[in-house]
Amino acid sequence: MPASKNVGIVIVSHSAKVAEGAADMVRQMVGDNVPLAAAGGNAEGGLGTDVAAIMAAIDKAWSEAGVAILVDLGGAETNSEMAVEMMPEERRERIVICNAPIVEGAVMAATEASGGSPLAVVQATAEELMSA
């Protein structure tokens, strides 16, 4: 199955190490048939998030099936929202930000995506972690 048929996963953390570490876990546990990209840290290399880096990650993980973004704290979410706003209009509808813990959410979303599930199901699986 070509990777581009599966929903892509983007991990956005304030820390480059957290983002890369979560991506490592996804690759090892789920495999490489899901487009995956991580954006961590601000433009200066410190803790924070960077809209341009998030946009680049969305591009890297882009799939016609869409992209699910996992974020950590506050700014990661608002900057991800801004990055989505700045994407071409025809792509915006196919990008979602999941309300889920970043590491577990990334692994669960990628597991769902690896089976070819559509974007709404991938998001629902990540967000299922928040229930009971």
Binding site: Q28, M29, V30, S114, G115, G116
Partner: peptide, 14 residues
């Protein structure tokens, strides 16, 4: 545990 759970669901999803 985690990895076996992922593999089991991936197998089922086929």
């Amino acid at each position: 545990h985690a990895r076996p759970s992922v593999k089991l669901t991936q197998t089922a999803k086929r």
